[in-house]
Amino acid sequence: MKNRLLWPVVALVALLMLNVVVTPSFFSVRLQDGHLYGSLIDILRNGAPTLLIALGMTLVIATRGIDLSVGAVAAIAGAVTCTHIASGGNAWVAMGLALALCAVLGLWNGFLVSVLGIQPIIATLVLMTAGRGIAMLITEGQIITVNDDSYRQVGAGFLVLPIAILISLAVLGLVALVTRRTALGLLIESVGVNPSASRLAGVRARTIIWTVYVFAALCAAVAGLMISSNVSAADANNAGLWIEMDAILAVVIGGTSLAGGRYSLTGTLLGALIIQTLTTTVYTIGIAPEITLVFKAIVVIAVCLMQAPVGIRVRVRGKQGVPA
């Protein structure tokens, strides 16, 4: 466990150190009007949607699946909520509607994967392609802006800490409790190692796969609410664009193998923090925004190579003669 998390921790610490060297006040956090402010808090706040989606993704990937549709689902959640609020509905009812619809979308993904047995990457590609179309259908191609105080709290509110990160951390705690304190985590991993063997051993593989896709869709829905409430608008085209890629990267950087069968929630937390810190770092140390993506690509490649099943790590360890 420690071994797997070593490189992500090193990467995160290195990124943070880089920031401190450039801006010595990077770690300072101040309390104002009962809200905490500071660069670290910003990282937490902006990273909340990615973390939440990555949590859902972790469980999906642990069953040897992948969910490409989360970005589209997030856009749909924002579109439904904002359309309902804009037409005079209550914010809570609107959010409930969005969650219910996204749960149905998760059921759909789960149905394709577990009942029809379609490869997850293709099954969720369907919704990834069609989902943005559906979101635009809901908003009729407009960017819908709303003005609702209780809705704004989800993404932009503070309860000492930003509410968004509190939600994400609460979900993280809940998932950790439910999967690591009961046998559920073990069952999920067993489905990931070998679905048919686990079914023969009495594990309800189909139900478990179905559950993780619904959970991933719900996480995406809440993340979509955060994104859209943060700007008080629903943009069907750009909300949550490429967030599925960020989430998958966060999961992989955290040491969860795409081949399924094992997962690390702590790793995902670290991965999501690394992704967000990376983005923030680019701004704070004044790297030109043009090369943000190049920088990101290099860090991702480096972390992935460090963790590669075969490769650099073995040789590095051999040279130094010190087990990492």
């Binding site: 990457i121 090369i291 943000t292 993506l293 690509a297 290099i298 991702v300 992935c304 490769g311 650099i312």
Partner: peptide
């Protein structure tokens, strides 16, 4: 091939890299 990393991840990184080089 050499490091046994998933094609999905490697080409995703390649996607970021190529797009980033455009901006450069």
């Amino acid at each position: 091939h050499r490091f046994g990393v998933q094609p999905f991840i490697v080409t995703l990184a390649g996607m970021f890299l190529a797009r980033g080089l455009c901006f450069v």
